[in-house]
């Protein structure tokens, strides 16, 4: 199954290597990892997605916590979340077929962020399946894709949880407490 871990790690040299090395050791492929500053000074927030057996979640989380530079680990496993990915897609486009691509982008609520005589760049934010969908339609409509750049998943639990609250709850083991406030994960973006 797909596992998603959100973790707070110290923002200093070598930390990413330590996290990555753990997965390498377990022979688990990291599907995506996004890292950036968090709301807490000196700590980066990481969303890491990997494919592993259902039972592996506990061991991965426990092992991540054994790394000195890892402060918090949340195993998102099935909890209501908002998950997004950013994609930049460059396709061949001339004045003859540009408008067709504009239409496609409109349907997918993507934006055109760059345009030249021979190509244009689409920016799209959304859940993974929508990005896959856009790419598939571009291919099926025989638009030539020149480049794709994807950020990987970013995930945040729904509801009023700061990371501190989650920590107090002992996240990852328990069901999310506010089921009723939660909507389907990966709901349509605004």
């Amino acid at each position: 199954m797909l596992h998603t871990f959100v973790s707070y790690v110290e923002d200093r040299p070598g930390v990413l290597t330590r996290v990555a090395s753990l997965f390498r050791r377990l022979n688990i492929n990291i599907i995506s990892v996004t890292v950036g500053h968090s709301e807490r000074a000196g700590l980066s927030r990481m969303t890491l997605v990997c494919e592993a057996s259902a039972e592996a979640g506990h061991r991965i989380r426990a092992s991540l916590y054994k790394l000195e530079n890892v402060i918090e680990v949340d195993d998102i496993a099935g909890a209501p979340t908002v998950t997004r990915e950013l994609a930049l897609i460059k396709v061949t486009a001339t004045r003859h077929n540009r408008s067709a691509i504009f239409e496609l982008a409109e349907v997918f609520r993507a934006r055109i962020v760059d345009l030249t005589a021979e190509s244009l760049m689409i920016e799209m934010t959304g859940v993974e399946s929508k990005i896959e969908g856009l790419i598939q339609v571009l291919i099926d409509s025989e638009h030539e894709i020149l480049e794709i750049c994807r950020s990987g998943k970013m995930t945040m639990r729904r509801g009023h949880h700061t990371s501190r609250v989650l920590k107090a709850m002992g996240t990852g083991d328990a069901e999310p407490p506010e089921q009723e406030a939660a909507q389907e994960a990966d709901a349509e973006p605004e």
């Binding site: 039972e55 506990h58 061991r59 426990a62 092992s63 916590y65 054994k66």
Partner: peptide, 8 residues
Amino acid sequence: IDPAEINK
């Protein structure tokens, strides 16, 4: 003492 050893 090591949670990573449980059910390993």
